[in-house]
Simulated scan of single mutants.
Amino acid sequence: MDIQIKRIYDPPGPADGIRILVDRLWPRGLSKERAAVDYWAKAISPSDELRRWYGHEPDKWEEFKARYFEELGANPEGVRELRQQLDSGPVTFLYSSKEERLNNAVALRQYLAEEC
């Protein structure tokens, strides 16, 4: 499973393949045309409560992933819908956070890799 990760504010590129937004909220100041999102996976993004609790604090990363994985495990239909998108070729998960290494797109890719 080849999943790239890219900040949604970066310009789309030909190697992106299917562009999947994995955030619950639409990115500020970005039009739908400029974002070039093919699928918005809102149903499998972290809950508002989890997102607020985490606050992109590096010390909470491992606990964030554990809680997020629990949420994903409790949402098999949302994960199944996302997996259908992954069958179409190259995929890029898009996120809006300024944090490049510790964000929900990275966690989601890890979850999907470990679930297989």
Rank of each mutant, 00 (worst) to 15 (best):
P11H: 10
S47M: 07
C116M: 00
E71T: 01
K98A: 15
D87K: 14
W61A: 04
Y54K: 12
G17S: 07
A66Q: 01
D23F: 02
Y9Q: 11
R109A: 05
R67Q: 08
P90K: 15
A35M: 04
E99Y: 03
K98E: 05
P14E: 15
G55D: 14
I18D: 10
N75F: 04
I44F: 09
P14I: 00
I5T: 15
W26H: 03
Y39F: 14
L21C: 04
K60R: 15
V79Q: 06
D16G: 09
G73T: 04
F93C: 13
V79Y: 03
Y95D: 05
P12R: 03
D2S: 14
S97F: 13
A35E: 06
F93V: 12
S97C: 12
K42Q: 13
V22G: 04
R51W: 07
D59L: 03
Y68W: 03
D23W: 02
S97W: 09
I5S: 09
W40N: 07
F64Y: 04
L94D: 06
Y39E: 14
D59W: 01
Y111R: 02
H56W: 11
S31K: 13
N104K: 03
L25F: 05
G29P: 04
F93W: 12
R19W: 02
F69S: 03
K98H: 13
K60S: 01
L94K: 06
W61M: 01
K32D: 06
D38Q: 14
Q4M: 03
L82F: 12
M1C: 08
P90M: 05
C116I: 01
Y54N: 14
P14G: 09
F93Y: 05
A15T: 13
P11W: 01
P27D: 08
E81S: 08
R52W: 10
M1K: 11
N75T: 02
G89C: 12
K60F: 00
N103S: 12
E63I: 02
A41S: 15
A43I: 04
T92W: 05
L108M: 05
R7F: 09
P27N: 12
M1N: 08
W61L: 03
I18L: 14
